[in-house]
Design a protein around this nucleic acid. Structure first.
Lengths: 232, 232
DNA sequence: CTGTATCCGTGTTGATACTG
DNA sequence: CAGTATCAACACGGATACAG
């Protein structure tokens, strides 16, 4: 009878045992931490600030409540997510990434850069706000963006973000931006169509997105995110 | 009755249906492709050249034959792995990564760099040859290695690899190296102890690894791979 | 010897309904 | 809104049997 390959990652704590790869390889350990179904996507939804249970769920069509509960517990146990109760007036619970959790961004970038080259990738599926913002930071071409300095407001589904272009990088924070050079408004999928599908003019004409401010900047902005060639 | 969220990724082909996240996000698509248990680790085992079924299994303690068969089928279907039959004399089947499959290396690097900072990472577990080689390319500090040019033979568990240090990078290929500056021999876990645990001298003295050639180079080599600080 | 297929016990996942 | 309970379907891992 062989040993059961069930190593407790919870350190003595009498909670449920987790399946482990029992492998010293860093990548294998990463999968022990975030390799379960939905785990990485839950983290993705938390990248741009704390969220409530239901708001996380809204960005993850298909996840069920019990699975989200389990993933949040697991991520909290691993030190990737913390849960916080806002002070009494609002008195509600939110989840947010720890600092280390936020430092997982390169994982998403590597996954995204590689997978969009898949012959099977279908960009017409639903896209959450969080995914879209992450994709901008993933796909920006530093060479093309170098020398461009701009402050851009992004309004997606009732949420507002400030994007700052500088030194070939784009940084994004939640919240409104004062006196932006440009404001883009629309659903994530539509803005993705403008940025990745070259449909800026058509989508604006069709009213699916709105472009306020420096139109020339908008035209240039959407050229900064080239998609890599498909594999195969 | 809701739709079943079972989207065929196999395009009309009447094979098994796969569970999909139905999400345009690149990272989500990556998980559709390689998010199943063991999939990434199977890829890891194929990074340094074609392997047979049993050799893959040897690097993955805990995987069962039927699961490995399923993963290889899935990876082949996704265009990540191909199966090839060697010509009649040897007449056996091997699996290898496609070019696109090999380009997934940054995913392993991002996962590894992030996860070794986990408070729960235990480097004393088994380590496959493939993992160790991948870790060298992941952890090398370009600044420290810059200006160092060397050819190093690595002999791990009956397999030989050639590592070439140049321009702050290390490239690794299977096969023996003619007239290396240095040859390191030992099990992956022991060599890892030398490189990451600062145990070069002790392990050599204990006979667990052997160092042939330029000893000063060996001393310097093991300082090129600093581990990042733990999180939390 | 190298894989593949099938059976089976168990654990994980997900849809629905339900509770504080 | 934020989860819990329940149950059915599926995936996993072990064993074994089979095919080239």
């Amino acid at each position: 009878m062989k040993s059961e390959k069930i190593t407790s990652l919870s350190g003595g704590h009498e909670g449920k045992q987790r399946r482990s790869y029992d492998d010293a390889c860093g990548a294998a350990h990463a999968l022990d931490l975030v390799g379960e179904r939905w785990a990485l996507l839950v983290m993705r939804e938390l990248f741009w600030g704390p969220k409530r249970f239901s708001d996380i769920r809204a960005g993850l069509p298909g996840i069920s409540a019990n699975v989200l509960t389990q993933r949040l517990e697991g991520l909290e146990e691993a030190g990737i997510v913390t849960r916080r109760k806002l002070p009494p007036p609002a008195s509600m619970q939110v989840y947010e990434l720890t600092e280390w959790g936020r430092e997982s961004e390169p994982i998403f970038q590597a996954l995204g850069r590689w997978a969009v080259r898949s012959p099977k990738h279908d960009p017409s599926m639903p896209l959450s706000t969080s995914s879209f913002l992450l994709s901008l930071r993933t796909m920006i071409d530093a060479k093309r963006a170098k020398g461009l300095k701009a402050r851009i407001g992004l309004c997606l589904a009732e949420e507002t973000f400030m994007a700052v272009l500088e030194g070939g990088e784009i940084t994004i924070k939640p919240g409104p931006l004062k006196k932006p050079d440009l404001t883009l408004t629309g659903e994530a999928r539509m803005l993705a169509g403008a940025v990745y599908g070259g449909q800026l003019a058509a989508l604006e004409a069709g009213g699916q997105i709105s472009v306020e401010g420096d139109k020339a900047l908008a035209e240039r902005f959407v050229t900064l995110f080239p998609l890599p060639a498909k594999a195969g």
